[in-house]
């Protein structure tokens, strides 16, 4: 053992770089003639490297936890998905089946106008989008006799439904209808009585929200751009009564490549379990930001 111990120390010194040139040359000469010493050197090198790696593992695991946690921050800060998922899919409602007498007005930003200027195919479902402070150009959409009209100025005698919940630059996707007539006088600025009927069951991604996030994480491919971006694509889509995805549209885009990717991922989702109301599956409009965190970009 004495001899082995000395050899080991020699090997250690060699690996540490603690030998001068003459000593190193002599040692390397010995390596060529003593296979056992050579074997010891190789093993020792592996074991030392193994030790270094083992020592890194806790840091790697800890960073993973931080990463897992950090990943949620953009969702929480950026927006409504969490609100929608946890607090709020209850906030939507069916439109009354009968025709509206009073105009219903929506406030939307211009990016959305083109996509939604046509009244939704399913007349029982409607999405109202509320934007608080990120609107560049505001327009109003008015539903009159089943047709949408877009106007620049706020129509007289009508109340814009503004979401009081959302205070930051977030977007709430809710469906609601107005019960009773709209106040005629512009001076009556009491909050509009909103009837919010919770749905009996919300649409559900197979496996639940965790599975949904996993699906997104696994499916999103970052567009390969020369100058990658970070940010969110706000996407709206309808889970129809059969659980399929329809009318997927970009509500607020990031850039064409990212928009296309967001649409691709949403459109290729597996079937959801549709929302139910009165025991019947009903279509439900959802809206969420899809976060693109670019690996190379600034954080």
């Amino acid at each position: 053992m004495r001899n082995e111990l000395e050899l080991l120390e020699l090997v250690d010194r060699y690996l540490e770089g603690g030998m001068d040139a003459t000593e190193r040359a002599a040692f390397e000469q010995r390596l060529t003639t003593e296979p056992e010493l050579n074997a010891m050197l190789l093993d020792q090198r592996s074991l030392r490297e193994g030790l270094e790696r083992l020592a890194l593992r806790p840091a790697v695991a800890k960073a993973y936890q931080a990463h897992r946690f950090g990943k949620w921050k953009p969702w929480l800060g950026g927006a409504s998905i969490v609100i929608i998922a946890i607090a709020g899919w209850a906030l939507w409602d069916r439109m009354p089946r009968e025709a509206h007498e009073e105009p219903i007005i929506e406030k939307v930003d211009t990016a959305q106008v083109e996509a939604s200027a046509i009244a939704p195919a399913d007349s029982t479902q409607r999405m109202v989008r509320y934007e608080v402070d990120t609107i560049i150009d505001t327009v109003y959409r008015v539903l009159e006799n089943g047709k949408w009209r877009t106007v620049k100025d706020r129509p007289e005698g009508a109340q814009v439904m503004v979401d009081s919940v959302s205070a930051a630059s977030t977007v709430e996707a809710t469906e609601r209808n107005v019960s009773g007539g709209l106040p005629n006088s512009a001076s009556t600025r009491a909050p509009l009585p909103l009837r919010m009927e919770p749905v009996e069951t919300k649409p559900e991604f197979p496996g639940g929200m965790d599975a949904f996030y996993n699906y997104l994480e696994a499916s999103i491919k970052h567009p390969d751009l020369a100058k990658p971006l970070s940010g969110a694509v706000e996407i709206g889509f309808t889970i129809d009564a059969a659980g399929g995805v329809s009318n997927a549209e970009i509500v607020k885009g990031l850039n064409p490549a990212y928009n296309a990717e967001a649409l691709r991922v949403i459109r290729s989702m597996p079937k959801w379990r549709p929302a139910q109301q009165d025991g019947k599956p009903v279509p439900c409009r959802l809206q969420m930001p899809m976060q693109f965190k670019n690996p190379g970009g600034s954080r």
């Binding site: 790697v60 999103i220 690996p295 954080r299």
Partner: peptide, 14 residues
């Protein structure tokens, strides 16, 4: 290391 690893985890999804 910690900061570096956290940043590197952004490559995990791929």
């Amino acid at each position: 290391d910690h900061a570096a690893f956290v940043a590197l985890y952004t490559h995990l999804p791929k």
